[in-house]
Nucleic acid binder design. Structure first.
Lengths: 135, 135
DNA sequence: TACAAAATGAGAGTTACTCTCAGTCAAGAA
DNA sequence: TTCTTGACTGAGAGTAACTCTCATTTTGTA
């Protein structure tokens, strides 16, 4: 059995966020000690893992709640759960692609600046150094 | 010369967001028509591009403003700009890695659900169907 | 000239945290 | 036994970055 602190450390999520997620109904199964303290077991950790996954993938909390509720309803909801996961997978692939594109611009800029520093050049890209702007 | 609408379309950003970014001081060079309408040229578009890049990479607006201000100060700030870009590049690589990890969980779930649908199985992963929980 | 489409700034609303606070509770030291 | 420390609690305020609405101009085509 894990406390919030344990889960926070294990999963790399802040305690605040876990409490916030719990209040949002993302972990319907966690038990409490006699003194009202949340106790997560390994199954609960699996839920935390999937919630984290969906959040990282940019699924909004309302949709995550929907997914959790579908899980609780049971096997009849597998098709809708499937479509949520599928849409999320597609969106994540798109997101990675976009990040990779921006990454290449960052890499370009980085080596550009490095060149300026190494060879003591001017930043010819900067509009400030461009005659158009320096009127 | 482009209006906000043109830029929004060209860059895939909402007009609202561009106005918000402009108000945040991200585009210090845009001119206005006599009747106060923003007019972007191709150099301004380059600024929009780099701001978009930094935002996608998760750089917060305060830091983007810093970067813009450094550009305006001029060549002496290239080292600090370099370190901002470098840090952002590293963060982005990390982010892509994280997304790829979560993507593989999504792929696993997707094929798992697909299997259930195709072969009319039960969702054995769901705690609801697990004897531990189904007490 | 008329009028729909597009621009403006101000400001309210939203999401998802993130943080602060006041307070409870259990365990070990003095 | 009292004190201190540290983890926990819920309530609620604060924050970032949009996102949207609104009341007004402004502009471009008929």
């Amino acid at each position: 059995m894990y406390t919030i602190k344990d889960v926070a450390e294990k999963m790399g999520i802040s305690e605040h966020t876990i409490r916030f997620w719990a209040k949002s109904g993302f972990f319907p199964f966690i038990k409490r000690s006699e003194t009202n303290i949340r106790l997560f077991d390994d199954y609960d950790l699996e839920w935390v893992k999937i919630v984290k996954c969906l959040r990282v993938a940019g699924v909004e909390n309302k949709e995550i709640k929907r997914y959790i509720d579908l899980c609780i309803i049971g096997d009849s909801t597998v098709p809708e759960r499937y479509s949520i996961i599928q849409r999320t997978r597609e969106k994540t692939e798109q997101h990675i692609k976009e990040l990779q594109e921006q990454l290449s611009l960052l890499e370009y800029k980085e080596s550009f600046y490095q060149d300026i520093i190494k060879n003591n050049l001017k930043d010819s890209w900067n509009p400030i150094n461009n005659t158009e702007y320096a009127k």
